[in-house]
Design a protein around this nucleic acid. Structure first.
Length: 416
DNA sequence: TATAGGGATATAG
DNA sequence: CTATATCCCTATA
């Protein structure tokens, strides 16, 4: 048997590790047995991070994974990675034996690691930036040395289960958004929709290889399509018309995607080299990032630090985000004095890609594995056929990326 | 909020 | 095309 080449190993890892229905234990065996690629695919990196997060969802290491995850290209715009990162960082600060030291290390300017991940930088928004993240970072920074503020924050963020739930939500969303593997894409090109074009462009040597992969029957089918349909003048005309109308569209619409993808690829290329040293990456990164935020924020933070605890007791943290949203309201009747250290509004994400999408995209249908089906059967046996939440919680390893509704629907299918 | 049921959509045959 | 599987939406308690 020929020796497995590194690129073959990369294809296998990309395919298997990125498959949510493969248990992490099995994926780890494969990872231990195969050489890890020098330039892993984004899909492989992403799925590795997700598996690492699932094994250890609330910790400093989880913070590393979340920050690295957010830096990967082609992010899912709907991904709750920012919320998960914020919840973990806030919990870590709240649960540390020395709140002051932890809050300073995580949230204080300029060096706080969570602060660097959410604060504005030279040359663009960090991937984890959000209005909520900035507000919370300010709150923790201001709570250093303020026992009352600390108590409030501990009440808000001190629940480990809550932070873990955020991470689990993120994992479900991310797994659902993981696309097809390189092998699946290649198979699609050779025997799927793109087959005819692929085969037509191939010479005889390459076609001989395709023939082995596709099988005789499929090969005949594809070759007959090439001869029967593709070379007719009508088809050529249709293809020509499609291409010209596409070109017309491109002339009218300025597609932001290519530039965005190019930028993302550059970031990935830079990160790839350091992929193995995630910790180093984040400790060194941003050492020279810009320090100064809007001066108003600093002033207000200073005010709170020295201010009386009672001012914080008045403040309803739940209402904070609403106030923040309303701050664009020209009404302005609300008293400013009751809003400690609200930062001035910063840039809001206005990507045309997101604006156009008012509805979340339908998840790619993922077939249920036999392991999942068996787990569901056992779960129903144990908890009954209307306790989907219990079944899901007690088998979160098997049901990666599945919701209680998915479980219910699947059971409906299995029992009819 | 969790679940049940109807419906939309993708995929297999 | 039909049948089936998966996913989404919404009423209800």
């Amino acid at each position: 048997m020929p020796r497995l080449t590194p690129s073959d190993a990369s294809l296998i890892l990309d395919h298997v590790v990125g498959d949510a229905s493969i248990p992490t234990a099995a994926a780890n065996v494969l990872l231990a047995g195969l050489p890890f690629p020098d330039r892993p695919t984004p899909r492989l990196l992403r799925s590795l991070l997700l598996r690492r997060l699932a094994a250890d969802p609330v910790s400093a290491a989880a913070l590393d994974s979340l920050q690295f995850l957010a830096s990967l290209p082609d992010p899912d715009p709907a991904s709750p990675v920012s919320a998960a990162h914020l919840a973990v960082a806030a919990f870590l600060a709240c649960s540390a034996p020395d709140f002051d030291a932890a809050a300073r290390a995580l949230f204080a300017r300029p060096g706080g690691r969570a602060r660097r991940a959410v604060d504005e930088e030279e040359g663009g928004d960090p991937p984890l930036a959000s209005s909520e993240a900035l507000v919370v970072a300010d709150q923790f920074e201001a709570a250093v040395g303020n026992a009352f503020s600390q108590d409030v924050l501990k009440g808000l963020f001190g629940d480990r289960a809550k932070a873990e739930r955020r991470v689990r939500d993120l994992l479900a969303a991310e797994w659902a958004a993981v696309g097809p593997s390189r092998l699946e894409l290649a198979a699609e090109q050779i025997v799927g929709d793109g087959a005819v074009e692929t085969w037509r462009a191939a010479d005889e040597t390459v076609r001989a290889k395709y023939r082995i992969l596709a099988g005789e029957e499929k090969t005949r089918e594809i070759l007959s399509k090439i001869e029967d349909r593709i070379s007719t003048p009508q088809v050529h005309k249709v293809i020509h018309d499609l291409k010209s109308s596409c070109a017309d569209l491109h002339n009218v619409v300025d597609d932001p995607l290519p530039a965005a993808k190019a930028a993302a690829d550059k970031v990935l290329a830079a990160r790839m080299d350091k992929a193995v040293h995630i910790n180093d990456e984040f400790n060194n990164h941003g050492a020279n990032c810009s320090v100064a935020g809007p001066s108003a924020v600093n002033d207000q933070g200073e005010t709170l630090r020295k201010g009386t605890p009672s001012s914080l007791m008045d403040w309803n943290p739940t209402a904070q985000s609403l106030l923040w949203e309303d701050s664009l309201d020209p009404d302005g009747s609300r008293s400013q004095s009751h809003r400690p250290h609200l930062p001035s509004p910063r840039r809001i994400s206005v990507s045309p890609l997101q604006v156009a999408e008012n509805k979340a995209r339908r998840r790619r249908a993922r077939r249920w594995s036999s392991v999942e089906e068996e787990t569901l059967r056992k779960g129903v046996e144990q908890f009954g056929s209307s306790n989907w939440k219990d079944i899901l919680i007690h088998n979160s390893d098997a049901f990666i990326g599945r919701t209680t509704v998915d479980l219910k629907d699947k059971w409906r299918n299995m029992t009819r």
